[in-house]
Nucleic acid binder design. Structure first.
Lengths: 339, 339
DNA sequence: CTGAAAGCGCTAACAG
DNA sequence: CTGTTAGCGCTTTCAG
């Protein structure tokens, strides 16, 4: 038990304990440059005995390199962002870079704050969800001088690089599939989230394609808060109550879609004969429902992987694509007639 | 457009641009000490114009203070840890501390590695899930000299402080409730995760309490990988196929329990008359199922809050409880007879 | 292969 | 209220 419990060990402590210069200890610990095997072993041994943990703060300041990638996402309780994160972590694992995540709760001001905090640690790159940011946030990203990848969405102009899907297109495609299957009395049910730009874009693409087919949305219903499954149920009940002619329900996410599905099945309604349903995201979680919900894969993991690849490449001064659009596949499941 | 796109701005740049010493600029930016309003405004203005973002690396090194709390958890794709995180973030928001999360995937070696990485940034505290760590990890925590809170579990000896529930007790309580309701042919269905010590402890407590009631587990079934909902379904089918006398299914988490529930309802089995079910966690997500699954709240958010409070207090050299045991409440839902 | 010197960008501690 | 002087613990660079 030493006298000072607070101060942690430094390179100097290891240097003194091993009788080797700080510089050589540093070399061993980073295995950089040539060090004789004898000294290397000695240093490693004493470092372990002492329980030395290098101070990255000092290292980063001296070397002017921080192997951190800031990842800024709206939420963790959504299942979609953890999957993006998984993709990022997985591909960064092959590099010396490490992700550090910040959460914005879909609030622009919080995003700005989180971004500022993260940039103040001088990360090697930024991966940030969405293309909509405050002006100040854009300015910071622009001024940071580090690679920036905006993810999830490609309907807009990126600060630097972007990888994602076109949500407008996703909405259009689903509308076309629904029309093609013969449905005409279509309802849209989603979150009351003016700041979820991707959901908004899907909705816009959806109504646009319906319009092109001469169909107008028959009902709209929005919710906020609460359990998504329960809300899906309630919203479905409300919509059908208001308009019993509805023959299709397009949900802005799979979770509320699942709620709607369970409700319809309980009511003994013929799905997808009498009423069809579709969600969005392709969450694996929901495999195991009585019927497989029609949905569209948001390419979450691929987006994460690709974004991480771009950062890794740019950190090594390699060139990369500036725009990477992935194309989500529609899956019909058991709730959308095949044609 | 300046000549050097790479180098980011320093205090010195702001100092020169505003004609005020670096020290005073620093004071303004941290609003520390007294600075005349005139200079303060001038500094703030030029800092903003330049788009200066302070370098926390340098600041932390100089001040020997890093306002980061390392949060180390097994997984993000589980719904339980994001809620713990939410609790932590929420209460840290009232302080100057910030959480930084690391994920271990339930692997002890990865936990060790992540811990090492995080400690090398010299955080102000550590919140880490579970009481089981490698010897090296314990040693690091012990040597770090910073407050450490182990969370989720209180069945064991903490390195420093701990806050959580007793999973052994949770298992026992559920067993008692099940026996009291009159069920006797009981199956346990869970994950094949030898490293999920909390699930293991629940199982142990469960079998122990059953034994005390003269009942032995009739069937066990474990899974790994795949969609939990689907797995719950399959496992339930398998168990009932093997042993049609089963009258209760205890699942190690709500998600597989929900799968089992949907399966039984589809088969037209009387729940909870013929067969009862219970899960664990109390995930809000699942409200909206046809029946409410019996479960036990794991106090996730409270655990996060309490842990964060402890760290915050300890950082300010205040004393705190070393052991905080929360008591989960059983919720009978519609799948466990009330008595 | 090893060491000495000079900072990295900021803040603590003192002086004015 | 403002400025000066020393570092924080490490790495870069340049000499041996």
């Amino acid at each position: 038990m030493t006298s000072d419990e607070k101060r942690s060990l430094t390179l100097r402590d290891v240097s003194e304990a091993s009788g080797v210069s700080e510089m050589t200890v540093s070399r061993v610990l980073r295995n950089r440059g040539d060090v004789s095997n004898a000294t290397r072993e000695r240093v490693l041994k004493t470092a372990k005995e002492l329980g030395y943990v290098p101070n990255k703060i000092a290292g980063a300041l001296a070397s002017q390199r921080v192997n951190l990638v800031a990842v800024i996402i709206p939420s963790l309780s959504n299942m979609v962002f953890p999957e993006v994160l998984a993709g990022i972590s997985q591909t960064l694992e092959e590099t010396e870079l490490q992700p550090v995540v910040g959460v914005t709760d879909y609030l622009p001001e919080k995003e700005e704050k989180v971004l500022y905090e993260m940039l103040s640690w001088r990360p090697s790159g930024v991966i940030i969800a969405g293309l909509e940011h405050t002006e100040a946030a854009r300015a910071m990203l622009d001024a940071s001088g580090i690679p920036v990848v905006e993810i999830m969405d490609v309907d807009g102009k990126p600060v630097d690089a972007m990888v994602g899907i076109s949500h407008r297109r996703a909405g259009r495609e689903m509308a076309k599939a629904i029309l093609k299957a013969g449905y005409r009395n279509i309802a849209f049910l989603g979150t009351k989230m003016p700041l979820d730009h991707r959901a908004r874009k899907r909705f816009e693409g959806f109504t646009e394609a319906l319009a092109k087919g001469g169909v107008e949305i028959a009902e709209k219903e929005f919710y906020s808060g609460g359990s998504a499954l329960a809300k899906g149920r309630e919203m479905t009940a409300a919509v059908l109550d208001r308009n019993p002619d509805i023959d299709f329900l397009y949900f802005s996410n799979d979770m509320i879609g699942a709620g709607g599905l369970l409700y319809l099945l309980e009511k003994g309604i013929d799905v997808p004969g009498q009423i069809g349903l579709a969600g969005f995201n392709g969450v694996e979680l929901l495999q195991g429902l009585p019927r497989q919900l029609a949905t569209m894969d948001a390419c979450r993991k691929e987006i994460g992987q690709k974004a991480a690849e771009i950062i890794a490449a740019r950190v090594n001064d390699e060139d990369t694509d500036m725009v990477t659009e992935l194309t989500p596949k529609i899956s019909y499941g058991d709730t959308l007639k095949r044609r």
